[in-house]
């Protein structure tokens, strides 16, 4: 069931990546976070569970999928809009919005969705292979 477990870990990771992207888009008009600062768009950082060198040395049996390393803020500018009436305006009348690259987020979202689909295909195929192997030697 190793192939299935690997695909499953990837499904989990892509699911969380989509959550992070959705959070970025949802907070595009956030003027202030709960901590008081300006909202920073986040990125999910993921990588293999075992490191590649040890996986190579030990052969194929050591591959164990992907995991989330963490969620990190990405560097970027802020967008300052002059609006003295806004309750979050600063002393000089400017409101600070995060500068979110919407096109970039959309592209990443499509990539995430395709990666998720790919993992599902791999998972289904592994299941089919397993089922087929169960038929081996059976009375047709």
């Amino acid at each position: 069931m190793k192939a299935q477990a690997i695909s499953r870990s990837a499904l989990d990771v892509e699911w969380q990546r989509l959550q992070v992207i959705a959070d970025n888009l949802a907070n595009a008009n956030t003027t202030r976070t709960a901590e008081g600062g300006v909202f920073r768009p986040m990125r999910l950082v993921s990588g293999p569970t075992t490191n590649f060198a040890s996986a190579l040395r030990a052969g194929t049996a050591q591959l164990s999928g992907v995991q989330v390393y963490g969620v990190e803020p990405i560097a970027g500018n802020v967008r300052r809009v002059y609006d003295p009436a806004d309750p979050h305006a600063d002393a000089s009348g400017f409101v600070t919005y995060p500068e979110i690259d919407r096109a970039g987020e959309m592209t990443l979202m499509i990539q995430t969705s395709r990666a998720y689909e790919g993992d599902l295909v791999a998972l289904n195929l592994a299941d089919q292979m397993y089922s087929k192997a169960l038929e081996l030697g059976g009375q047709s």
């Binding site: 499953r8 499904l11 989990d12 699911w15």
Partner: peptide, 26 residues
């Protein structure tokens, strides 16, 4: 809970039951 965890658990259970049935048949 992400849906895929539920469907995957169901699929895994189904496959292991199938394996048990095949062992029984043999």
């Amino acid at each position: 809970i992400p849906v895929h965890q539920v469907t995957y658990a169901l699929e895994e259970a189904k496959l292991s039951v199938e394996l048990a049935m095949q062992v029984r048949t043999r």
